[in-house]
Amino acid sequence: MRVEQIPAASFFSLLSEEGLRIRLGPFNVRISTNLRHLAEQLHFLYAHYELVEDEITEFHVKIVSKRSIPRPFSASVHFLVDDQEPFPPAPVNQALAILEWGINLAIALRTNHLLLFHSAAVERNGNVLLLPAWPGSGKTTLCTVLAHRGFRLFSDEFGLMDTECDELLPVPRLMSLKNQSIDVIKRYLPEASMGQAIPHTQKGTVAHVRPPQESIEQSAKTAKARWIIFPKWVADSPLRLERLPQSEAFLLLASNSFNYEILGEAAYKAVTRLVKTCHCYKLVYSDFDRVLTALNELTYGG
C-alpha cells in the first residue's frame, strides 16, 4: 500500500497517533506529528512511498510544536529522533524542511554498515552515475533535472555503497531546492511536483520536489557505479567535461564521504575500487540543455 491510497482524512490521525511508517530505500522511517499543515504537505509529497508492513523500522522521528517558557507567544517546531533533539527548534512553517534535514542527519550519523558519500546519484541502463559535490555546487538542481529527463533517481543527497558487493543503494528522498534553483526548476521542469516554498530557513528559501514515481517503485533495485562526475554550476560558463586522474578523483571522493574515517580500511579499499573501475570527470556547466546532451552522449555511448 502507498501513501496516496490513504484517504486524506485518516492520514492525519495516522501521523498523530501510531505514526506513518514508510520505506525510504534501504531504511524504514516512522514519522509522527501533531501538525495538520505538515500532514497535508506530506500527503502530497510522500504520495508514492510504500508503507512498511512486518519489518523493523530503524528511524523513529517526530515533529512536535511546543511553546517554550522563554518564548511563550511564538510556537516552534522541534525535530526528535528517538526523543533526542539534534538541532534547535525552528518556526512552525519550517516543519517540512527540518523533518527532511532531520531524517538526512539521522541517516548520516547512524549508518556505518554502508559507505556514505555526500553525493547525488542517478541510474541508466543498470549503471550508476555518481555526482559527489559540496554544498552550493548545484548538485540537487542538476539531479532534479536528470531525474526528470530519463535517469532513475537514486538520491540527491546520499551515495550509499555496500562495500561487500560494491552495489549502490537507492534512497530516493524529496529533493530540496534552494533559493534561485526553485524558479530555475519551475521554468525548466514545469511537470515537476513541487511543494510550497518555505522562506527564511537556515539555508534561505527551500522547496521540495517529489521524486518521480518510477524511481520510488524501483528503489529496491541496486546497481554498480560506472561514472563519477564532480559537478559545479558556474554562471554563464561554457560546458566543460574533463577527465580526472584517478589520484585526484580518489582524494575528492574520500574527502566527500560522511563516514570514510569511521569505516577506515574498508572505505579506503572501496574508494580505490571505485576510482579504478569508474570513469571520473569534472563538470562545469551553466545550461541544462548542454549538460543533458553531454551526459546522454556519455551514458549511452559509454
Partner: peptide
C-alpha cells in the same frame, strides 16, 4: 537475526571501534 537489526548493530559496533581507536 533480522538483517535490519544486524545492520544497525554493526553500524554501532563500527562506530564504537573507531572511537576506541
Amino acid at each position: 537475526i533480522p538483517v535490519r537489526a544486524a545492520n544497525q548493530l554493526r553500524s554501532g559496533l563500527i562506530r564504537a571501534k573507531k572511537f576506541q581507536q
